[in-house]
Amino acid sequence: MEFKSEYKRRQDEVERGLEDQMEILEGKIPSELYKSMSYSLMAGGKRLRPVMLLEFSKFGSWDYKKAMPLACAMEMIHTYSLVHDDLPAMDNDDLRRGKPTNHKVYGENIAILAGDGLLNYSYETMIEGMASENPGYVLALREISRAAGVKGMIGGQVDDIKNEDVNIDIKTLDSINERKTGALIKASVLSGAYFSELDQDKIKNLEAYSDKMGLAFQIVDDILDVTGDVEKTGKKSGKDLENKKTTYPSVYGIEKSRKIVDGLYEKALINLKKAEADTEFLVKLTSFLCSRDY
């Protein structure tokens, strides 16, 4: 299997799903709001979370395409968080996915409302597309809601902001990363598992897998903030140092941080195999997430 082409095929499937959802809104909401929401949502990116959700939705007897509303909602939630993260009051970034950030194009007020719009539309999308005959769909919706909420991503973001210019220990850093970044990655995996109605032993192993992958993903992001090429990452490097954030590279250095990622990768593969989810694509996706340069 050629991984890049298979990943691209899955990304294209997600793109079509997102386009369909945005077409529903066209002409029905203020034009500036529609343009701003579309600008960030349709700007490309890895589409990692929806791809993972759909991939783990293929293990049961249900048609995985019925999980597309969940996948689209996941990308909307992720994108809204980026729009808000980039605002001057947050990380104050002016480049995202290789393009000027939303507030640089549409202004802070519209960017805030576009982020709000994407978050709320994600729930509309999940509810309107509910596969009522599949009990796992509701569990998936709950998992996504929790991950995006105050106990998940939002709470992690608050602690991340409050601990800028503070030397925090690894336990605190891991807690922030688990919620700020790991929560949505875990929700992507577990939502697919719930949709597939996998048994509890498999879900337990996939939970362990997603915990390791969420941390690995954040550490790689932290490494790329130091070593990344803006032409590949689509965003400026050095923001963590500028914002005086504690990261794995700032504590352990680049080389040891990479070794930590390697260890997480090996352990994640064990959990994936125990869950009987070690398909060729998912194994290669796991490798990609731990070795990526963007």
Rank of each mutant, 00 (worst) to 15 (best):
G98N: 05
I254Q: 04
V261C: 08
E108W: 11
D229S: 07
N102C: 14
D93P: 07
T286Y: 02
I168E: 00
M213I: 15
L87P: 02
D225F: 00
S38I: 09
L118F: 10
I219G: 01
E276C: 04
S175G: 15
H103Y: 12
E255I: 01
Y194W: 14
Y252D: 04
L173H: 05
N120T: 14
G192L: 09
I168F: 02
V261Y: 04
E128T: 11
I223H: 03
E55L: 07
G182N: 02
D174F: 11
N92T: 08
K202S: 15
S57C: 08
T227Q: 14
A131G: 06
K162V: 13
G115P: 03
V105P: 11
A114N: 02
Y265T: 07
N102S: 10
N205A: 07
A277D: 10
T227R: 11
V283E: 10
E26L: 09
K46P: 10
K235V: 01
S5E: 15
K259P: 05
T172Q: 04
D229P: 06
E2S: 14
E276F: 06
T227Y: 05
A114M: 01
L184Y: 00
V51R: 00
G263M: 11
I270E: 15
Q200R: 12
H78Y: 01
T233H: 02
L282Q: 04
K99M: 14
C290S: 10
K204Q: 10
V226G: 09
S287G: 10
L41C: 01
A193H: 09
S250M: 10
E19Y: 12
I24D: 12
E280A: 13
S237R: 08
G152P: 08
Y252S: 02
I24Y: 12
M22D: 03
T227E: 15
M213T: 03
S196M: 12
G45S: 07
A268Y: 13
M22K: 03
R96P: 11
Q21N: 13
R179V: 00
R146W: 13
K273Q: 15
Y7E: 02
L139V: 01
F288Y: 15
K244M: 08
I260T: 05
T279A: 03
L118V: 12
Y137P: 10
D278P: 04
N109V: 09
M68Q: 11
K245H: 01
S257H: 03
T101V: 02
E124A: 07
E124S: 09
G152E: 06
A73G: 15
Q218V: 00
L82A: 13
